[in-house]
């Protein structure tokens, strides 16, 4: 049959580091997604660098740093970039589908269960506990990101952290306006400081 999925060419069989096709990309990102409890990125590194050997550690870091500087969930951007690199547009679609579809169905299932049994006392208690812990994780994420920034450049970064926090967290202003108002000024300041620092 000609329509069997992704026939392996003889010379490619057994060489896992050869450029993966859409099918392999889908499966790899599916594996990353369903093992990624509480943060997917460490599992992405393990899968792409250590287990499959598709990317070197440096290539992974380089790709990740680009993905982190773009908007959108970092891991989704990473799937797009990795898919594109090995199999073009089809690769990107395969990788992002592998990453998102199964977790999305799991989350919808959990949401439906919660909607149905949300009145049960034990479940309510469990979700309350989970919510408190999840909030703590976000507190830690914010602190971890703030610490190096404040240490390296307190005067150019500090005010923007405070203003963004005050505008969105305290004043409840719409986030797009706060972001579009603050980011260009912050970028311009970084640009000028770097231009001055350059020889």
């Amino acid at each position: 049959m000609t329509d069997t999925p992704a026939p392996l060419e003889p010379d490619r069989a057994g060489r896992e580091s050869a450029a993966p096709g859409p099918g392999a990309l889908f499966l790899a990102f599916l594996g990353i997604a369903i093992s990624g409890f509480g943060g997917v990125l460490p599992f992405a590194r393990r899968m792409l660098v250590e287990r499959r050997g598709w990317l070197s550690a440096d290539e992974f870091n380089e790709t990740l740093s680009l993905c982190q500087s773009l908007p959108g969930p970092n891991i989704v951007n990473l799937s797009i970039a990795t898919g594109q690199r090995f199999a073009g547009a089809r690769g990107s679609v395969a990788a992002v589908s592998g990453l998102v579809l199964a977790p999305m169905m799991i989350v919808i299932g959990l949401g439906a269960l919660y909607g149905r049994f949300g009145g049960v006392e034990r479940l309510q208690g469990a979700v309350m506990g989970l919510g408190a812990a999840a909030a703590g994780l976000v507190v830690a994420t914010a602190a971890k990101m703030a610490e190096p920034l404040l240490r390296r450049r307190p005067w150019s970064a500090g005010p923007f952290i405070i203003l963004a926090f005050a505008g969105v967290g305290l004043m409840h202003w719409p986030l797009p306006w706060v972001l579009l108002g603050l980011a260009p000024i912050s970028i311009a300041i970084v640009w000028r400081l770097r231009a001055k620092a350059a020889p």
Partner: peptide, 11 residues
């Protein structure tokens, strides 16, 4: 430049 704004938003 975007980083400190992001930190404020995550806060």
């Amino acid at each position: 430049g975007v980083a400190p704004v992001t930190v404020g938003l995550i806060g």
